[in-house]
């Protein structure tokens, strides 16, 4: 068998289109998912009552069902209930809900390991529970669980390949599309695999760069 990558050239636009979709899905999901996790972790950890339990239910459902089923439920299930939803929106919502649930649990581990003295200092200074969460608890909690957070975001980026199943034109969809036309499966999937690998490595690098700035306080260097 001979490898012939030139057969991909006519489809470079398709690959780029798929890459762009995967990229924006990932970027929006990362920000929205983490934002969601910040809210969910706060309510679950520091409030009690019905909201806390509802969000607990949400986290458990997401963490104990397959992502593709969640995606199908949103895409096929919601229209059946009379709520129309487009494929890209269903993909985005599924990804945000997924990352939000997992990240909330990761973040809670960081919040729970906050020293009691930090809470007491915040309270003695008159900060409310929400103010204390926002100004005192959150950043050190993130710094403690940051490696897990990075991995989770990468997992969701890689898992986004599944959205091709509801015909969202992402990188995997592009690969399937090309393969079904030029029958050069090996070349196509090799290229796409490399792109995913680069995306994952790039994401990790970017996260680490941001982390070094955000969590500069952990290094004891000169001030």
């Amino acid at each position: 068998m001979t490898l012939d990558f030139s057969t991909l050239l006519p489809y470079s636009g398709v690959i780029i289109e798929g890459l762009v979709t995967t990229l924006w899905l990932t970027v929006v999901t990362t920000f929205a998912g983490i934002a969601l996790a910040i809210v969910v972790a706060y309510v679950r950890d520091l409030e009690s009552g019905i909201m806390s339990r509802l969000l607990g239910g949400y986290v458990e459902v997401v963490r104990n069902t397959p992502f593709i089923v969640q995606l199908f439920f949103l895409f096929f299930g919601l229209p059946a209930l009379g709520i129309p939803i487009s494929a890209p929106v269903a993909a985005l919502v599924a990804m945000v809900l997924n990352l939000g649930a997992y990240t909330a649990e990761i973040l809670r581990a960081g919040i729970d390991s906050t020293a009691r003295g930090q809470h007491e200092a915040a309270r003695a200074l008159g900060l409310s529970r929400l103010q204390s969460y926002r100004h005192v608890v959150l950043v050190p909690a993130f710094s403690r669980v940051y490696p897990s957070l990075i991995s989770q975001c990468i997992i969701v980026m890689l898992g986004s390949a599944v959205v091709s199943q509801i015909s969202v034109f992402d990188l995997t969809y592009a690969a399937n599309f090309i393969q079904s036309r030029n029958f050069r499966g090996f070349e196509v999937y090799l290229v796409v695999t490399l792109i995913y690998l680069l995306l994952a490595v790039g994401m990790r690098r970017s996260f680490e760069l941001v982390g070094r700035r955000l969590f500069a306080f952990r290094q004891g260097g000169s001030a």
């Binding site: 200074l125 100004h135 005192v136 952990r218």
Partner: peptide, 19 residues
């Protein structure tokens, strides 16, 4: 019980600013 992620001046300013 200083806040580790805040500089000295941020530690001192936090409560006046927020509270």
């Amino acid at each position: 019980n200083l806040f580790p992620h805040k500089t000295v001046v941020e530690n001192v300013m936090l409560a006046p600013l927020v509270v």
